[in-house]
Computed example of a mutant assay.
Amino acid sequence: MTTTTKTASGDDGSLPPSIVYIIDDDEDVRQSLGSLLRSVGHRVEVFNSPHEFVDARRENIPSCLILDVRLRGESGLAFQQSITKIAPHIPILFITGYPDFEMSVKAMKAGAMDFFSKPVREQEMLDAVTQALRRDAERLSFESSTAELRGRYESLTPKEREVLEFVLAGLLNKQIAYEMHVSEITVKLHRGQVMRKLGAQSVVDLVGQAQLLGLKPRTPSRRS
């Protein structure tokens, strides 16, 4: 590997909490990659085999996995398939000392982010790791936001949820009132609570949130 000075840090020079896992049965490769990544501020954990990785405790922070294709007695490609049970979303960067086009195509089709031949070019690996960690950070942020939104939705009363479903169907307040056998002012109050609890600023916001939650409009049961 050639020496590089470019780091993967942000504009302020710091790195967000994240971790890079390395699985390779070649100690020299583990040490070389580990040293490279640590030199630019990454936290790194190395493993001799997939079994060690499976048994290790993993934190719920942005992460990625650098995985050797050919491991002693095991296949990195086979492990890529089984890892979906323990870390289904982790971005995988494959490395191999025996480049094979069909193998790389198979890995990429199965979801790998990149495929590198040994010896790895340092800057290419650093760039790929930065991209992988960024993608995983975006996923975790999205999941966190969705979980928070789900909690807000759960705080709605049954009547508020019913109003929300009619709003998603495009009904006006007077039409919703007709469907629910309540006054229009009652609908307005429920609708205001829905907007407040979900933190929506407009109907467009409301529709976007409903889509994230997988909510469906309620079909009017009567002509209104």
Rank of each mutant, 00 (worst) to 15 (best):
L133G: 04
R134H: 09
R135S: 09
R135K: 13
E138K: 12
R139A: 05
R139M: 12
L140G: 09
L140M: 15
S141Y: 04
F142A: 07
E143S: 14
S144K: 15
S144F: 09
S144I: 09
S144C: 08
S145N: 14
S145L: 02
S145D: 14
S145P: 08
T146F: 08
T146W: 12
E148W: 09
L149Q: 11
L149A: 12
L149D: 07
G151M: 11
G151N: 12
R152V: 02
R152F: 10
E154Q: 11
E154T: 10
S155M: 08
S155Q: 14
S155D: 03
L156R: 04
P158Y: 04
P158M: 02
P158R: 01
K159I: 11
E160R: 03
E162V: 01
E162Q: 14
V163T: 15
V163Y: 05
L164Q: 04
E165W: 00
E165D: 06
E165T: 08
V167G: 02
L168G: 05
L168M: 10
L171R: 15
L172C: 05
N173V: 10
K174A: 03
Q175S: 05
I176E: 08
I176Q: 14
A177R: 10
A177M: 08
Y178I: 06
Y178W: 00
E179D: 06
E179R: 15
E179C: 06
E179A: 15
M180T: 12
H181I: 00
H181E: 13
H181M: 07
V182F: 07
S183H: 02
S183N: 12
E184R: 04
I185W: 09
T186R: 07
K188V: 06
K188R: 15
H190A: 07
H190E: 00
H190L: 05
R191E: 04
G192A: 01
Q193C: 01
V194R: 04
V194G: 04
V194A: 01
V194W: 01
M195D: 07
